[in-house]
Structures are given as C-alpha cells and as structure tokens.
Design a protein around this nucleic acid. Sequence first.
RNA 1: CGGGUCGUAGCUCAGUUGGUUAGAGCGCCAGUUUGUGGCACUGGAGGCCGGGGGUUCGAAUCCCCUCGAUCCGCCCA
Length: 450
Amino acid sequence: MSGTPPTPASPADSGDAAAPKSFRTPIGTHDLAPPESGRWVALLGAFIAAADRAGFGYLQTPIFEDIGVFARIGEGTDVVGKEMYEFLDRSDRHLALRPECTASVCRAFAQHRPATPWKVWYQGPFFRYEAPQAGRYRQFHQIGAETLGTDDPDADVEIIALAAEFFGAIGLQRVPLLVNSMGDADTRAAYGEALSSYLQRRADDVDPKDRDKIERHPLRILDSKREATAAVAAEAPRITDYLTQATAAHFERVREGLNALGVSHEVDHKLVRGLDYYTRTTFEFRAASLDTAQDTVCGGGRYNGLVEALGGPPTPGIGFALGIERLLLACDAEGVFDIPAQRAEVWVIDTAGGAAARDLTHELRSVGIRADRAFDDRSMRAQMRAADRSGAEVALIVGTDEVDAAAVTVRPLRRPDGGDAGMPQQTVPRAELLGTLQRIFDELNAEGGT
RNA sequence: CGGGUCGUAGCUCAGUUGGUUAGAGCGCCAGUUUGUGGCACUGGAGGCCGGGGGUUCGAAUCCCCUCGAUCCGCCCA
C-alpha cells in the first residue's frame, strides 16, 4: 500500500527543511486497495451477471446533479434536509453530490423518455454528510436496479427476486426479507390521520426523545428502536388495513409471486422506509448476522409519482439499492465471499540482465497466461521467494546458461496434491516452452482438480 | 450535531508507582560458500510514542486543548 517514505527533500531543492504536509482521506471516506479491492470486483461481477440474465442494462448518471433533482426525495428527510453535499459551481449553478440514485434514474427517464419498461441497474459512490459509524460512511457505494414504466406487481417480484438471487450468488444466507405496502396517496392520507390521532392519544407513552416525531414525521415513530416507543408502535393501526382495493390486490399479488418463486419473506407493518416517495410495495433485506446499528443491507420500493414530480410523464417505478460496504460487513459476519486470491500462474526469474523477464512475461501474457516477474535485478534467492509468494504454479528460470543455449528452465513450484515440495525441473528450448507449460498445467488440473 | 472508547514501527500490541540510547511478534530487505522458494538461523531498514500547550529536574506515561479513528444516539444503504 504505502511505499517507502520518500527521502526528505534536500535543502538545496526546497530551501526549507520543514517536513512536507501529509494528507489522509477525508472523514468517512476510504481508499480501497488490493487485495480487498478484489472482493469488490468480484461482487460487481456477480451482480452484473444476475442483472444481465434478468434483462437489466447498465445506467450511469452523473455523480452530481442540479440540487432540485434530490429535493423530491423528501422535504422532511434528513437526507435532503441536512446531509447533502451541496455546492455552487463557478457559474453559480446549485448542485449536489448525489445522496442516492433513484431520483437520478427518474430524472434520466424524464430527460430521455426511453421505451418502457425501462430496466436498468447502476453502481457507484454516493454521498451523505453524516458522522461515520459501522456500515455508514460519507462516501458509500451502492448497487441498485430499477424498473420504470410498469405498475405490474410482477415487476416488483422481479426486482425483489433479483436482489435475492444476488445474495444467493455470493453465498449470503441470513438476510431475511421484510415487505410492506404504503398504499397510494389516498391510503397514505387516510392512514396518516389515523396514525396521528392514535399517537396523540398515546403521546405520554412514547419515549420523550421520539415525541417530536409525532408531529414532524409520524411514520418514523413506527420503526423507532426505543422500547417505550416500540410498544406504542406495536399497537398502532396498520397501514395494510387502510389499503384501497387496488393497492391491496397489488400487494397480494406481489406476495403471491414471491411465494411462487420461493423467495421467503415476512410482512412487517412497521416497515415505512425513510424516503417520502414510496408508494405501494416497500421492502428491506436485513443482515441478521450484523449486530451493528445499521443492518439494512438492501432497501427499496415502488415510487409511482417520482418521475412526474421531476417533470416527466406519469410513470410508475420500482427498485432497490443495496449498500456494498454493509453487504461486505454481512459477508464477513457470515464468513462467506472471501477475498479472491489474485495469483500469477507463471513467474519469470531472470538473473541475466532482465531482458528475458521483460520479453517472456510479455509473450506469455499475450497468449493468455497470467505471468509476472520481479524488478530491480534482485538475487535469484529473492526472485524465488517472490515467485513462491505470488502463488505461481511454475517458475521460469533464465540465467546466463539458458541465454547461451536459447533455453528456459521450467521449475514447477506446486505439487498436484497441494503440497509444495517441488518437482523435478527441466530445461527446454525456448521454442518448446509453451508446449511444456501446457503439459504441466494439464497435469495439475487433471490430478489436483478433484 | 450530542455521548462512549481509543491513538506507541507497514500490521497486531508490550512499555511496570513519571527516570538514561522506546521494545516484541508478524511483515519487509539482505545474508547463512558453487544459479533455486517454503522451514530454521543471523543481521538490517523502519517510530517528532497523532498534533499543540501545560505541570515537573525529568513526560510515551499526569492535566488541558485539538485532530483523527471507532462505536452509539439520530438517520439511512
């Protein structure tokens, strides 16, 4: 990662002996370096495969947008209220770093008017100005998928199944799915009244720290973690009792579909989600293996009014976002989806000046072999150590003898049985090198690949 | 933004009631006779003890401030 510290600038160059200022990543941000970064690449690969099979195409939207795009997420939410990275550019345009992607996807839809259904997935960094803690960062990363242009409950099922499929692909087991329905505007209004009057009646039983929410954001009372509040919430009216016939039927069909696909789930009447735009289906996957404060690994729902609110045609939509950092935390907790080993297949050792290492690695790579080498003309011993640590199957040794004979010494480093005691080496003419390597790999695959 | 815990080598950590040149393990580099890895041994590089101020003859150690990390509230992926 960090290399050798640079030698201090000589007074002659700098004219000043003061140590240069050093920097680190801003609060709540992180570098992602090998080997850990290999996990992200693999994770993305697994998602891409699942999304591709389900007919979702990749959508990339800007990392910053006109701040108005995000205002529709919810006036009362912290996400737009106080957590946005907003700024004026040099021409006084009021912009913001994106805190999430659904609004951007809807903006893109309104801007381009693609044919429907529009099925897209996205991936990338998002930004929220919050104090970091376990599973919550100022720059975090999400993968998500959205289907716009259809209100068909089977689209909801497809979206949820995609997330479930992905969890399965990376080996996550303990991520129970919770679903609920927020109904439509009418049910939300009717339910809002019922909930408010109930909460006002029980205000004294609500934890004092939650009381202000009764006025400000009554829905959020429902998912409070405080014991007293949770007790009140448990007896609160349920939104599913206020669903219109159409939304109730929609919800029923979604559940039926999940059952049909074997996606186990549970209805959670207290699942309200934080963002204002949700209508009808809402859902969350929570990591049961995590005992951190943030255990929602994937959240989503339907947002039938959002495209219109962003100046587009009335267009229904459903989607989810999943937090990569949290997902990886959950993988750690379950002990699944390890960091993939990145290893060379062949390591070239050159004690005759380096030209052979330069040329051979290039030649091997061009025929598809993962080949690597040491630099700086190190001793043979050092190069052998590097070869061993690289995990390579085979070392190719080129010293002065080999150069004179136009040959290469092929030195296997692993045994098919997994041991590493070494096998007899052989010196072959350079012209026969690829064939010899092929035989060795075949042998290893045949005997070792049980 | 409020609260808890914590900052000593690249990493994980020792460092006794304040007392001389701040240590270990791992990692890294080099060697242990001829051109050969893992194991073992030897040596080496690498620390403004997070930063600033204070108390003291003397501070990694005590006090204050600050910055950062981490966790919780809150919020959310």
